[in-house]
Nucleic acid binder design. Sequence first.
DNA 1: TTAGTGATATCC
DNA 2: GATATCACTAAA
Length: 171
Amino acid sequence: MKLKEDFFHRDCLEVAPDLIGKVLVRVLDDASEIRVRITETESYRGEEDTACHASKGRTPRTEILYGDSGKIYVYLCYGIHWLMNVVTGENEFPQAVLFRCGERFNGPAKLTKALEIDKSFNGESFIENERIWIEDDGYVAKIKTAPRVGINYATEEYRVKQWRFIDKNLK
DNA sequence: TTAGTGATATCC
DNA sequence: GATATCACTAAA
């Protein structure tokens, strides 16, 4: 069953753990299909979250975070790596969930590389998309939380937040 | 531990 | 126009 907009139209702190165990389906240009179970996500929530890209205000890049839930936010990190997020929650409230890790893949950039994600996906949606979507196959994950990683620039208050979600059954 | 890489934001 | 920054990876 494909996830609909309802699923994404909630607070990212609800969506992120719910995405654990879901299946990310990607159809490549040659029509081959890749299915990856999501094992790790992180929430980035609001302008007051100093780890969130939107914390410095609304810019052309972060504009999408203020937009419709279910949209894909892809951005280039360190000049090499594409990281993929999905926008969640209400319009005008910038928040997103980062896909950090999937089954067989450790690391957000390996994930996007394997799935051949690039900036052409930025602004696309997971809802009613022919190239990429997310399915619920009934698998129920055991969720464990942890502090987010790679956000040393954030303030102490937000560095310690347990906004990283991992499937305890794997790892 | 460090180099590589390039879009973005921020400073002229 | 210039430069500092960055939610990473691979090689050593």
